[in-house]
Design a protein around this nucleic acid. Sequence first.
DNA 1: CCACACATCCGCCAAAAGCGGGATTTTGAT
DNA 2: ATCAAAATCCCGCTTTTGGCGGATGTGTGG
Lengths: 224, 224
Amino acid sequence: MLRVMVVDDQALVRRGFALVLDNEPDIEVVAEAGTGVEAIEAAHAQQPDVILMDIRMPEMDGLEATARILEAGDTTCRVIILTTFDPDEYVFRALRAGASGFVLKDIPPEALVDAVRTVAEGGAMLAPGITQRLISQFAQKLGSERDLAERLQRLTSREREVLTAIAAGKSNAEIAEALFIGAATVKSHVSSLLSKLGLRDRAQAVVFAYECGLATPGEHDVGF
Amino acid sequence: MLRVMVVDDQALVRRGFALVLDNEPDIEVVAEAGTGVEAIEAAHAQQPDVILMDIRMPEMDGLEATARILEAGDTTCRVIILTTFDPDEYVFRALRAGASGFVLKDIPPEALVDAVRTVAEGGAMLAPGITQRLISQFAQKLGSERDLAERLQRLTSREREVLTAIAAGKSNAEIAEALFIGAATVKSHVSSLLSKLGLRDRAQAVVFAYECGLATPGEHDVGF
DNA sequence: CCACACATCCGCCAAAAGCGGGATTTTGAT
DNA sequence: ATCAAAATCCCGCTTTTGGCGGATGTGTGG
């Protein structure tokens, strides 16, 4: 039995969703909440499997509440964000908060039920437009890498190694130490790869490394 | 009326999907193809709205065919990739090729029909697991950007401007020219921002800019 | 076998970058 | 009005960097 909680400040909306879900034999609405604070308390007390969370609410908005509930770590529940209209500005915050779904309130009842089941099973469900945008953003990044990656092949393996190190923010001396070669040799490799790639300095080399996918954001700590 | 094309090397599978779709009043299967090459020809000739594309096929796989069809630009059709099992390795290629959907073949018929309609309307439809992974990857990246972006706030607006220019591969002289200030001033800003961010040189500054999202791959040409 | 290309290595030198000062003006907030 | 912060500029000084030339090994193909 799927234990679901519905969070919305409008009681009528809340009851509507709750009725739709309770009508399913395998779904049980175990809690309702009208504010973010209530939601946090109820999530802790009832430990639902899935939470349907509205964004606009008094006291604390749904995204903040989502983040707190999931950060607490004392629960394994998953959250579907409900919104009325253009989700553009909220979607990134929602994903960062840890939401597993993001659907519009005009979703057909069957689709909502599907979404709850899907999310409970570990999947994710986004409104079609959101998915489309997520894909676009992803594809754009991957797309430009191809032609640049070809230029990478003109480098020797040693040069690629050096370029990777440069893209990690290492100085020539550090690269020399890491590769067990002389500092002068590193400079030679650097000069060579800059020339081959048509770049001027190591800063441009870092840019190139990121643009072609040799380095990708989120890989290293920027502790330096 | 939605014009749909089904591409799969197994005739039975093809017919199965085609029958399901043709059964809908607003959907018409206008073409079928058994190979990637056939798919390209048929897409050009029939101009379908949506293409259901299998991955594994002789002659040319579905991803390659998808890329060619969409690259051609003489069509506005959208593609849903069909696959049997673990799509892990194909997902990125598919998204890069321009696919608007990625679903497993064990999808329920109604859901497939939904997917076709959704995609035709400009949305996207991914298998729940895929969506989940896409979200995870996104959330991870956004997460690491968060704290770094805070450090960005310690900079003055001018310093952020300079940092952006550095992240574009510009030299101090070029930055000076672009901002209508003296080269010495640029050096001051650079020194200041490096100090504030705890970085050593401009190469690390570029890394920081990419890691915190100030610069993102795929934005500028690496023509320099 | 021997040229030739290529990768790898090193030293020298000029240019750029980065550092630590200091000074002036503009801007904003109290 | 006043004070603080930011933005602008300047100047030496040291370190790093990048370009140039040259040395060595390792193949590959004529």
